[in-house]
Amino acid sequence: MGVEFEPKIVAFMCNWCTYAGADNAGVARMESPSNVLPIRVMCSGRISPEMVMRAFRAGADGVLVMGCHIGDCHYSTGNHRSVKRMPLLRNLLATVGVNPERLELTWVSAAEAPRFVQVTHSFTDKIRSLGPLSQEVAE
C-alpha cells in the first residue's frame, strides 16, 4: 500500500459566484483542500457533459460542478441548464457502473466562502473514501 490515496478533483466554477466565493475564501485565509483543481468558466451553463467526462477520462477521481444559486445566476438562467443536465449525467454514470457520487453539482455564491471550504472538504473526503476512479473503471 504505502502512500495514502489523494484524489484529484476537477472543480468547474462559474466566474461570478463560486469562483468569487473561492477567491474570498482565499482572501479570508480559509483553507480549502489542494486536491481541488479549479477551472473557471463564465457560467455553470457552459459546463457540458463532455467536459465532465473529459475530466474523468483525463484522470480526475471526482468532478465538482459549482455555480450560482438558482435565481442568482449572473446570466439569469444559465444554471437552470446545469441543474437539469448534471443529474441526468449522474444517473448515466451510475448506469455504466461509475459511482455517481464522483460527480456533484452544488451552488456556492460569492458571499459563501465558508460554504466553498465546507463543500470542497467534504467532497474531497468523500472521493478519498471512494478510492481512485481508475480502479473502478478498469476493475
Binding site: 457560467c43 451553463g45 457552459r46 441548464r81
Partner: peptide, 10 residues
C-alpha cells in the same frame, strides 16, 4: 451576447 457559454454547452 454576454458570453455565458450556455449555448456552447447546449
Amino acid at each position: 451576447c454576454k458570453g455565458c457559454g450556455t449555448c456552447v454547452a447546449t
